[in-house]
């Protein structure tokens, strides 16, 4: 049950998961694992919108109504991302107008019961901004 390969890579960005906000975008993401994991074991890798890699300093991770700078996620040992819940990446950027956007998100997982494992999940979707 432990070795889950990078097959569920298409399960990071939710369908219809792009929302335009006042400061940029909000991306609905799911935990690419079969069970809940502590936020400290989740790392947001590269976020790219329409070919532009977003500065990590311009992205925050939102879960259950609370926002975390990406660098702070590692410290959230007591906060659990329940596997059925969406989390949101709030991206501060100049919106690129209407129509479809090419969104790619990489989430890295470090399942705490498999020492030394880093599971990279890269998802990419074309989404209409809501």
């Amino acid at each position: 049950m432990d070795y889950i390969p990078a097959m569920q890579t298409s399960r990071v960005i939710s369908d219809n998961g792009l929302q335009a906000t006042a400061s940029g975008y909000r991306i609905d993401v799911r935990l690419p694992w079969y069970r809940s994991l502590p936020v400290s074991t989740v790392e947001v890798g590269e976020v790219c919108i329409d070919g532009q890699v977003i500065d990590p300093g311009k992205v925050t991770f939102e879960l259950e109504g609370r926002s975390y700078p990406l660098a702070d996620m590692e410290n959230q040992v007591d906060k659990v991302w329940f596997v059925l819940d969406s989390a949101y990446l709030n991206v501060e950027t100049t919106p690129h107008g209407g129509g479809e956007h090419d969104v790619s998100v990489t989430l890295n997982l470090y399942p705490p019961y498999i020492r030394g494992l880093k599971r990279v999940s890269r998802d990419r979707k074309n989404l209409q901004a809501r």
């Binding site: 049950m1 502590p38 470090y110």
Partner: peptide, 14 residues
């Protein structure tokens, strides 16, 4: 009931 031995909740520390 499947339970887990989550040794490394704090990365880098067992």
């Amino acid at each position: 009931l499947a339970i887990n031995a989550d040794q490394e909740i704090r990365r880098g520390r067992v």
